[in-house]
Amino acid sequence: MRIVCPFCGERELGEFTYLGDAKPVRPAADAGEDAVYDYVYLRDNIAGMMSENWYHGGGCRAWLKVTRNTLTHEISAVEPAAGAGAAKVGA
């Protein structure tokens, strides 16, 4: 499998680490135990297009949001995580 890193270009699978479903959002601090439990443990087992977190540890150390078909391994989109890349300017 090959992933086109937005920062480094097309690289092979061995440079990346898979984490899992990119959809769950970390609950707010006051969301309560059930919401955090869902966030930590409950995952959809998707047969088809899935948005996933991948880490380019063998390259630029960016976290990427990869849209992948779990049936064919076809990758249709790769986006950097919201906080990936250079330092914020004027933040």
Binding site: A22, N53, Y55, G57, A62, W63, P80, A81, G83, A87
Partner: peptide
């Protein structure tokens, strides 16, 4: 060492992108 770097980058880039912070190994 490597895993904590990966974890902290995940926190920085994915969980808390609003924070103005950079990590250097």
């Amino acid at each position: 060492a490597g895993l904590v770097m990966q974890h902290l980058e995940f926190c920085r880039q994915v969980l808390f992108p609003e924070l103005d912070v950079q990590l250097t190994s």
